[in-house]
Design a protein around this nucleic acid. Structure first.
Lengths: 230, 230
DNA sequence: ACAAAAGTGTTGGAGCTACACCCATGT
DNA sequence: ACATGGGTGTAGCTCCAACACTTTTGT
């Protein structure tokens, strides 16, 4: 096996969080090196003897103090030889979802700070991180249509209107509230809790929970989750 | 940047070919090393200064003498540390389509032989290559439903029945011939050539061609290609 | 004339889209 | 009493699934 290969392998993660009717991504601020003080996606080099998945979880834990609800591989970026000025680096990127309420952010190791960045005014970032974010955002939008993935961005108990807002916010489309509710409820994987939420004004909302087990059972029998819009 | 990382990066490709109503994948036989004489997916280490895409094209050219019709990144396999006994290796795998009639296979460099392997009796292969093939096969099946990708497996001019057989063979499902034809023709991206094919017995078939430009134009306006079955 | 593959229309029903008013609470 | 957000039903239409016979050629 040829032994002079000098290409590094990194993992990067686009972690989405949804709060107060807006979509955010997790960014960290570099503590060392030529990119010091710049905001970038959490991630870093894979360690010897470490799996890719482990590497992502480790970096998210170290740099942001976060455990994600959902994680999947996104894409491997390696067609821009000079994406990192230090060395040829290939980035295996991941796509993750989290409910920000669950965590208090905390930066450590090579991150000096962490923050939730509103995705709609993401600044220009070093490397190809804007491209990675775009790719992840497209994936998120696509997935919302055919996989019940929105629930990983919400608290365990949520009013139905939060789900509506999540869809309209992320997809930047209006939806027909009646049809949307009918559709979601028809799948039968969310159920009413017996609590209500009081929001200050307006009629109190039923709280719902997503039933993961029910969904998995249905999935085996081949349901086809698909949301279309008016 | 940490400098002791000792993980290699390889690319591997699952190249599908369709001929005589059967689906094949391309395998090469190793010429050197601990896996000598074994059949594996075409691929190899990425060279310094080379992009991932270039690496795949190069390996396919070198090891099999092939240029593919369609290529997309499939998945990056790196969660099994010991997938290669020589060293920790991460495989960025690709998914490719080709019409076998266009090529005469020719093995070179580290391949001592090449062949088209019928996918339905693929033997057990070294590394995690069976897993990679499975992943690619699932992707192929899924894509057939929502992307007009079958045409990359057929010659430029083909009788409609070849497309039918391609679908039934790959998806292992019967289709309703009338509904299928109506559906495909309704998209309006394949057109009749004025040639006919004589098969020996039976009524001669119209030959069709896939109009790539027309498809791209329609795609921009947002057509939704989707094939369902009886 | 018969075997083999190509070609072709219609109908019933499921599921989607479109659409607007009443309800429960706070101020 | 009014403002705010939550909750609900129906009718028309579109599009899909189901279904079988005729045409063209070779032998």
């Amino acid at each position: 096996m040829q032994n002079n290969q000098n290409i590094k392998i990194a993992v990067d993660a686009v972690v989405f969080g949804y709060q107060d009717n807006a979509l955010y991504i997790l960014l960290i601020q570099q503590k060392y090196g030529p990119y010091k003080d710049q905001w970038v996606l959490p991630g870093g080099l894979v360690q010897n003897g470490e799996t890719l998945t482990t590497a992502v979880h480790r970096e998210l834990q170290e740099e942001a103090g976060i455990k994600v609800n959902y994680l999947e591989q996104l894409y491997t970026f390696g067609d821009d030889i000079n994406r990192d000025q230090r060395n040829q680096v290939i980035s295996v990127s991941y796509f993750a979802l989290v409910n920000p309420e669950n965590f208090k952010l905390s930066a450590a190791t090579d991150a000096q700070d962490v923050k939730w960045q509103n995705i709609s005014n993401t600044p220009t970032l070093p490397f190809d991180h804007n491209l990675i974010i775009d790719t992840a955002f497209k994936r998120l939008k696509a997935k919302l249509h055919y996989q019940p993935i929105g629930f990983d961005l919400l608290p365990k108990k949520f009013p139905f209107s939060d789900l509506e807002h999540l869809y309209t916010t992320i997809l930047e489309q209006e939806i027909d509230r009646r049809n949307f509710r009918k559709k979601i409820l028809s799948f039968d994987f969310i159920k009413k809790s017996n609590e209500k939420q009081k929001t200050g004004s307006g009629r109190p909302a039923q709280l719902f929970t997503f039933d993961t087990n029910k969904y998995k059972a249905l999935e085996k029998n081949g349901i086809h989750f698909e949301i279309k819009f008016a």
